[in-house]
Design a protein around this nucleic acid. Structure first.
Lengths: 209, 209
DNA sequence: AAGATATCTTTACGGCGTCCAGATACCGAC
DNA sequence: GTCGGTATCTGGACGCCGTAAAGATATCTT
């Protein structure tokens, strides 16, 4: 009965089910969307009984939290890549584009990420200012690199928050067919996003240079 | 058995249940949040059997659509008031503030509004450009009043869309406790929103004057 | 007055999240 | 190496959900 595919932990007599459940959840999420993501379906997909997940997660919300956390880590990775590849003056813009593209490429996962956060009325660790190497800090630090005053803390926090709000707003809206004709007029997805961000005048430190 | 409270329609042998159901839904939504809003709970609250709503709504989604539509009408009303009361140069800013305040004051309703839209992959009628007197057109027309070129259609549409994205992003984020300290630093809710919008440089036509 | 029709109730089905009692397999101590 | 303890999984149950079908009831039309 043992089919552990990685040489890692595998804590007890079944091959580490926790990981298997998370993978099953991701598979369902991509294939059938958030509404199909039931605890029972995850257990079914992983080949265990409906009650089995309760030995690894307190309840359904805790499983979704774990899925969401993976999402934030993915997003962080994408943003890190985007920042590394971009020209210095384009780094901030690239972070925004990477954020929106992540949401566009993983709409179900993105929704789980924010639904989980909403239910807790708190943003996940990955977005907090006191967590080094969070996406939030990537944006803030990039602003500093581009000339923002690192000592004007409230100002800096406001600017970062504003950028985050804007990216989130665009990410949610970009999913609607409503804007397809605008995208066509502009010749694709990327130009549309660039134009929106430009209109927001989101990145003053970029524009000033 | 008849307790119709308004002198209106009341189409058949029971006092117009459709309206009663919508009112019950709104009551549940405010008191217990979106997760408690089940069809059965609405029927229960309205004092009818679980199957009764099916004579007025095709399914649960259609009931939620109707609730959402009421929400968009409320939002439109708030935005109309905000625009009417504001100084000319402040109209656009006031529209944004009104939008975010509506979302803050009716978080559950706001969520239903966008959830309903997401499931259809289309924005509701109230937000469309071809619907005169929609919130969308209020924003667009205000931009024209403030000096935007009414003939540069794509440009105008982009600016309006950008503003809408920004307002939605702020509206969603403003619910998180994460930003409470920022609000305190700035002395309350409104200054926070003003500062965020200012940081976005959202309203170029305003700033130019 | 009577038939048609719209409204509401009853009953039922399968799926859901969750709990509980029992079975099963691993772990450490002797 | 055996054995008790413990973590892991199964099976079954409960109450909730959305929804469908069939029967009852009140209104509308004629």
């Amino acid at each position: 009965m043992r089919e552990s595919q990685t040489a890692e932990a595998r804590p007890y007599h079944h091959g580490d089910l926790r990981r298997a459940l998370l993978e099953a959840a991701r598979r369902i999420l991509e294939a059938e969307g958030p509404t199909a993501l039931s605890l029972r379906a995850v257990a079914r997909e992983a080949g265990v009984s409906p009650a089995a997940p309760y030995h690894h997660f307190k309840d359904k919300a805790e499983l979704l939290d774990a899925v969401a956390e993976q999402g934030w880590e993915m997003l962080d990775k994408r943003m890190a890549e985007a920042k590394a590849e971009a020209e210095p003056r384009e780094k901030l813009n690239s972070l925004g584009i990477a954020y929106v593209c992540f949401a566009r490429d993983n709409p179900a996962l993105y929704r789980v990420m924010y639904d989980a956060a909403r239910d807790k009325e708190a943003l996940p660790e990955q977005m907090l200012a006191d967590n080094e190497d969070s996406p939030y800090c990537k944006v803030r630090d990039t602003m500093i690199e581009l000339g923002a005053d690192p000592d004007a803390q409230t100002e800096l926090e406001l600017a970062t928050t504003a950028a985050w709000c804007a990216a989130h707003g665009v990410a949610e809206m970009a999913g609607f067919r409503q804007f397809d004709h605008l995208k066509q007029d502009l010749g694709g997805e990327r130009p549309f996003l660039h134009a929106i961000f430009a209109h927001m005048g989101l990145f003053p430190h970029v524009r000033r240079n």
